[in-house]
Design a protein around this nucleic acid. Structure first.
Lengths: 223, 223
DNA sequence: CGATGATCGATTGTTGACAATCTACCAATT
DNA sequence: AATTGGTAGATTGTCAACAATCGATCATCG
């Protein structure tokens, strides 16, 4: 056998690359809610025919990042803060707690090391004041946890909310007062996973995810 | 103004009709998990070109009803009972409780009447021993509740799980011992919505949704 | 005999052209 | 002036042909 592990060569179809590009443009904020996505324009810009592009738009629609109606142009969707805070984040919390409970005892050193590495990335991003990288690392931290469970449904539900969370985070950029708090919080979570009891982990985890939206609600309350 | 309210004329694209047909074939059990969906076969059978069909397949994939990989044929997805019971149903419970809390006080007579009508349908279906109709009525009951909230996210998350619930229910058909229990349970829920306190409603609702999977786990434990 | 390479049929991926529909605008009618 | 009807341009919906890739099969070679 091969002693070196090659990364799986991801065979991305045109449709998937197009999808990723548009998604990134949306969650990075280059496309604002309500912006029209005209198929011909985009297909010309990307040098791609409309077939794969249309399929990519349908994928984005399924994730709630765009909205469309027959014969009307597709537009970037909006995400309202109350819905994210009241619904998406609770569902997400439920999802992560489910996986943590489900996989208790399966946490090995490789898992902890991966989280450690992500926390290090967070620190770098916070030091650089790179908000986007920070958010991506944050998401990757939680995805690493979710990946403990290989159930299709877990991934599917996560996919259904993660991009709207991205959109939400980016939209409420200004609220992140202290970027350094993010790596610190996640480091605390990691150390809890290593040493603390299940109940304590659950309590910490719940508070962490609640705090994340408090960070974001914050800007509404300041003078 | 017109005194008569016309139903909104639904303008369904070919893609949407194709989507609905395949979805029905899957949740009705005519297509079993693992069955291959060859684009050319289906497009010929439906007398439709592959473009809209492919988009419909991508929609089905987003809902977790089919799985596919590049250059490999799409196949009907399977749904494992543990995942439904452990994850989909808890998430669904959370979703419905959220909407109920959110819309408390907005429940009018028209809403109750709609639920009443659905319960009547359930009774008919149970009397006819028509399992499929019963399941559809059950789903419609809960969709009626969810429709109290007009948030996009609520619908989106529901869409992400409802078809897999359908698949699950159909798959575990044999478990439904007493069809009459279903309308009775929902009638109880309805009367609780009318008269009981919020706490009592929440408790009843939680028990109801838990019971639904108990009904389905049932077949594993008999004899 | 086992591993590698080539070939073929089947299936999906992609494209560009054509058809159907929508929106906006303006004229006709009352 | 308000409503209706019609037209034009833009945009999406649909199609059928072509290209790329996959899996199975068999030949080749060590």
């Amino acid at each position: 056998m091969n002693p070196y592990q090659f990364k799986s060569q991801e065979n991305l179809s045109l449709r998937q690359r197009v999808f990723a590009d548009i998604r990134d443009a949306i969650v990075r904020g280059h496309l604002k809610p309500g912006d029209k996505l005209r198929e011909l324009d985009i297909s010309k810009q990307m040098n791609v025919s409309r077939g794969p592009l249309r399929e990519a738009l349908r994928d984005l629609e399924a994730l709630g990042l765009v909205v469309s109606a027959p014969y009307r142009e597709t537009a970037v969707a909006d995400v309202r803060k109350e819905e994210v805070v009241g619904l998406l984040i609770p569902v997400r919390l439920q999802l992560e707690l489910f996986v943590l409970k489900q996989t208790r005892g399966k946490w090995d050193e490789a898992f902890f090391a991966a989280l450690e590495e992500i926390v290090a990335e967070m620190k770098r991003a916070a030091a650089d004041n790179d908000l986007f990288a920070l958010i991506e690392a944050d998401i990757r931290f939680h995805e690493q946890v979710l990946s403990l469970d290989d159930s299709t449904h877990t991934q599917q539900i996560w996919l259904g909310i993660v991009n709207r969370l991205r959109l939400h985070f980016i939209k409420n950029t200004g609220a992140f007062g202290d970027l350094g708090r993010v790596p610190a919080e996640h480091a605390a979570l990691l150390s809890a996973l290593r040493d603390e009891s299940d109940e304590r982990i659950e309590a910490l985890w719940t508070r962490h995810i609640r705090d994340e939206d408090c960070l974001l609600c914050f800007d509404e309350k300041t003078d």
